Amino acid sequence: MTDQQLALQAIGQAQLILEDYLQPRPQNSERILDKLVDVLERPDVMAAVSRLQRRSGLEPRQ
């Protein structure tokens, strides 16, 4: 999978988590945040985003 595909997959998963959170029912905010962190801070996703940032001339997030 390319860096772009990994990043887009993670963004898509994060969007689904947020869509679920926005449904009008009781939510466990801590659980939702944990799910987002699990998706967005996966080592492969973080490495892919860092490489994409370097290639685009953007500073990687510290």
Rank of each mutant, 00 (worst) to 15 (best):
1 M>L: 15
1 M>W: 07
2 T>E: 14
2 T>S: 14
2 T>I: 04
4 Q>L: 14
5 Q>D: 12
5 Q>P: 01
5 Q>V: 14
5 Q>F: 06
5 Q>K: 09
6 L>V: 15
8 L>K: 09
9 Q>V: 12
9 Q>Y: 05
9 Q>M: 08
9 Q>N: 12
10 A>T: 04
10 A>F: 04
10 A>G: 03
11 I>F: 05
11 I>P: 08
13 Q>D: 13
14 A>M: 02
14 A>I: 08
15 Q>R: 12
15 Q>K: 14
15 Q>H: 10
15 Q>Y: 04
16 L>C: 09
16 L>F: 04
16 L>P: 07
16 L>G: 10
16 L>I: 08
17 I>Y: 00
18 L>C: 10
19 E>L: 10
19 E>Q: 14
20 D>Y: 08
20 D>I: 05
21 Y>A: 15
22 L>I: 07
23 Q>N: 07
23 Q>S: 09
24 P>D: 00
25 R>C: 06
25 R>W: 04
25 R>I: 02
26 P>N: 07
27 Q>A: 13
28 N>M: 06
28 N>R: 13
28 N>P: 02
29 S>A: 14
30 E>Y: 09
30 E>W: 08
31 R>W: 05
32 I>M: 06
32 I>A: 03
34 D>E: 12
35 K>H: 13
36 L>S: 05
36 L>D: 01
37 V>S: 08
38 D>G: 09
38 D>V: 11
39 V>L: 01
39 V>W: 00
42 R>N: 06
42 R>F: 00
42 R>C: 06
43 P>H: 01
43 P>Y: 00
43 P>T: 08
43 P>C: 03
44 D>H: 05
44 D>S: 13
44 D>E: 15
44 D>L: 07
45 V>H: 04
45 V>L: 01
46 M>T: 15
46 M>Y: 03
46 M>V: 15
46 M>F: 07
47 A>Q: 14
47 A>Y: 02
47 A>W: 01
47 A>V: 06
48 A>L: 01
48 A>F: 01
49 V>W: 03
49 V>F: 02
49 V>C: 10
50 S>F: 03
50 S>Q: 14
52 L>F: 01
53 Q>A: 13
53 Q>V: 04
54 R>V: 15
54 R>Q: 14
54 R>C: 08
55 R>I: 10
55 R>F: 03
55 R>C: 06
55 R>G: 10
55 R>E: 12
55 R>W: 02
56 S>K: 07
56 S>A: 15
58 L>I: 09
58 L>T: 10
59 E>W: 02
60 P>K: 08
61 R>M: 11
62 Q>D: 13
